[in-house]
């Protein structure tokens, strides 16, 4: 790949060090999927909704049904990136008293399924916990890394260092509004995958995946070799199949949470999550045939 010296440097540092790509890392899951010419399915659930136990079982059901990578959301009081569905779930979890340490333990339990498990967290809970300690405890629990939606590369120095020290993957976001120079900076700080926001907006199901999404993915591709997963608004197998044709990963969140919110019982919710996961997994795996 050609490009400016600076870009080559950044791209190189984004790929190294290889030692951080351990077994069970997010990056290695993407690398394997790439050799199989398929996209990965990434499933999100907030910790502690409807209860810690039920969220664990729902995540396990996801993995059993074919979700490749799990995101466990750390409930936060001011989730500015989230729409009403996820807000309602995390409000519930917080009212139930879910703590950061519960989320780390849950991530460990889900990671035991063998699926790389990331914690998705707004920055302040990590800052309060201490970034170095958070990385240590997440790594010790078996977590693969963290997605930090309100942390931009310019503010991420401490987290990148802590994650690298513990061999955790970092995941940062790009959006349709991101100019190339920022996409390069995001990719340089990212070891796991670049999280491409499909549209300008917050989480929540949409009837259509934004048309901006494919263009964004194509643009990011020209700027980095880091894998790219698309999230925000993907909820149906049809949408997932479409995105899986051109993205390295398909991220589904609110659609699962909606099922848990609407289910008559926790068991029914867990079962519904498993069913949707199976349909999505089939769609993603079949997308490029």
């Amino acid at each position: 790949m050609s490009g400016s010296l600076e870009l080559d440097d950044q791209a190189a540092s984004a790929k190294s060090p290889p030692s951080s790509i351990s077994m069970g890392s997010v990056r290695s899951a993407f690398d394997i999927a790439r050799t199989q010419n398929r996209s990965l399915l990434v499933g999100y659930l907030p910790a502690g909704f409807p209860s810690i136990e039920a969220s664990a079982r729902a995540a396990e059901a996801m993995v059993a049904a074919g979700v490749d990578v799990v995101e466990i959301g750390l409930p936060y009081s001011d989730p500015v990136m989230d729409g009403p569905v996820i807000q309602e779930a995390v409000d519930h979890a917080l009212r139930d008293g879910v703590r950061t340490r519960d989320v780390l333990a849950l991530a460990g339990r889900v990671a035991a399924t063998g699926a790389p498990t990331l914690v998705m967290t707004y920055w302040n809970p990590v800052e309060r916990y201490s970034p170095a300690q958070f990385a240590r405890d997440l790594a010790a629990a078996g977590g693969a890394g963290a997605i930090t939606p309100d942390l931009i590369p310019e503010e991420a120095g401490e987290w990148v260092a802590a994650a690298q020290h513990e061999g955790l993957d970092t995941v940062f976001l790009v959006a349709p509004s991101s100019p190339d120079v920022r996409i390069r900076a995001v990719a340089a700080a990212t070891t796991g995958f670049v999280y491409a926001a499909s549209t300008m907006g917050v989480t929540g199901a949409r009837t259509q995946v934004g048309t901006a999404a494919q263009g964004l993915v194509e643009r990011v591709r020209t700027l980095t070799e880091v894998p790219i997963a698309v999230g925000l608004g993907v909820s149906t197998p049809e949408q997932a199949a479409e995105v899986a044709q051109w993205a390295d990963g398909v991220i589904v969140g609110s659609a699962f949470v909606r099922l848990l919110l609407d289910a008559p019982s926790q068991d029914a919710g867990v079962a519904a999550v498993g069913e949707l996961a199976a349909a999505l997994a089939q769609a993603v795996r079949g997308a490029r045939r």
């Binding site: 939606p149 349709p176 991101s178």
Partner: peptide, 12 residues
């Protein structure tokens, strides 16, 4: 200070 917002807002 600084900026702790989604990347989508940085351009704005």
């Amino acid at each position: 200070g600084g900026r702790f917002v989604p990347e989508a807002l940085i351009a704005a």
